[in-house]
Design a protein around this nucleic acid. Structure first.
Ligand code: SF4
Ligand code: SF4
Lengths: 163, 163
DNA sequence: CCTAACTCGGATATCAGATATCCGAGTTCT
DNA sequence: AGAACTCGGATATCTGATATCCGAGTTAGG
C-alpha cells in the first residue's frame, strides 16, 4: 500500500505557493521546472488541487496558480484527499456474507470487528495529518533548508517571468 | 491509496483459525470455501502469513494451517505487514534535490517537514492497529455475529474432513 | 475592437503492480 | 513401498497508475 508520488509533488507545490510574495503566481510549467518533475503530468495534480479548492488558477496570457485560501487554512490532509480521493484504505468486501455460514443480509451488524479496527486506525492517521498545515510546513522548509538552497530559490524566482 | 483485499481475507482466516478447537487445522481449500474466495489465490496470502510466522503449515495427506502462536500475540498490524509488506505509505523522491535550488546532497537535513508529518501520521496508524489482536477480534466476531450464522459455521466445521 | 499568444482542462497512450491460476516438490497415512 | 494429498513458488491476465498530447478559453497588447 503505497501512496502516489503525486502527493509529495502537490504538497511541495503548495508550500512553494505559500512562500510566494503577495499577488505573485506561478504557471504549471514553472512549478514543474522548480521541482524537476514532468510538467504535463504535474498539471494533472494541480487540476486536482483546483477541484478541491486548495489552489486557484487564472487562465490566459499571464495566468498561473496561487493558493485559494490562507496557507494555515490548508492542512496536509486536504492535499492528500485532493490527490488520492477520499476512499478509505480498507474497503469491505463482505466476505461474512458468502460461504456456508451466511444468513440473511439484514441480520448482520453494519461492520465487523476487523472493519471497525481498520476504520479507527485510519481515523488516527487522518487526525495526525489534519494537525499539520501548509503554513507550518512553509516556515519549517525555510528554517531547515540549507541557506544556500533558499538563496538559489529566491534567485530563481527573480529570473522567471512574472505572471 | 487502497489496501489489498487480501488483508481482509487474511484477517478473517486468522480469526477463524483462532476459533478452532485445540489441535484442529484447516486446509487452504477449506478456508477458501468458508469465506467464498478463490482458493488458489488465497493460498498466496497464506504463504505470506506463513513467512511472517503468524500461521504454521503442515504438509502431506492430513496437512493444513493453524495459528503459529497464541491468538492474543498476533496483532492486526502483524497481519497487515505480512500481506502488504513493510514499505511505508509515503516514500521520498527527494524532489528537494532536483531543480534550480539544489545544492550538494550532504547539506540537506535527513527529511523535510512533509516527510516528517507523513511519517508521524503513519506511526499513529500503526500504533492503532497494533492495539488490536486476533483474540479480541475472535471474541467480538462470535459475540456480534447473528447466532444462526455461528451455528451454521459450527455445523460446517463438523462436516469438513478433519485434518 | 481585434488579434495573437499563452494558459488551463480534459481526453489519450504506455506501463507497473495487483489479481487470479497452474503444476511440480515434498510429506503423511495406508 | 506406494499412493494420494498437501503446500510452495513460478506463470498468465487485468485493472489502475504513470506519462503525454492537443483543443477550448482567456487575457494582454496593438
Ligand atoms: S464488515 Fe468485516 S466481514 Fe464484512 S466486509 Fe468488512 S471486514 Fe469483511
Ligand atoms: S524529504 Fe521532503 S523533499 Fe525530500 S523527498 Fe521527502 S518529502 Fe520530498
Amino acid at each position: 500500500m503505497r501512496m502516489s508520488e503525486r502527493v509529495e509533488w502537490a504538497a511541495h507545490c503548495a508550500v512553494l505557493l505559500a512562500l510566494l510574495p503577495d499577488g505573485r503566481s506561478l504557471t504549471a510549467a514553472q512549478l514543474a521546472e522548480y521541482h524537476g518533475v514532468p510538467g504535463p503530468y504535474l498539471a494533472k495534480s494541480l487540476q486536482a488541487l483546483m477541484q478541491a479548492g486548495i489552489v486557484a488558477s487564472r487562465s490566459g496570457r499571464s495566468g498561473g496558480y496561487r493558493l485559494a485560501r490562507a496557507a494555515d487554512a490548508v492542512s496536509l490532509l486536504d492535499v492528500f484527499d485532493a490527490i488520492e480521493g477520499e476512499g478509505a484504505f480498507f474497503r469491505c468486501t463482505e466476505i461474512r456474507r458468502r460461504g456456508p455460514s451466511r444468513v440473511a443480509a439484514a441480520r448482520y451488524t453494519p461492520v465487523c470487528g476487523v472493519a471497525g479496527a481498520m476504520w479507527e486506525a485510519e481515523q488516527a492517521w487522518r487526525a495526525s495529518l489534519a494537525r499539520v498545515n501548509i503554513a507550518d510546513l512553509a516556515a519549517g522548509t525555510v528554517a531547515d533548508a540549507p541557506p544556500e538552497a533558499v538563496a538559489k530559490g529566491v534567485r530563481w524566482l527573480a529570473t522567471v517571468r512574472v505572471t
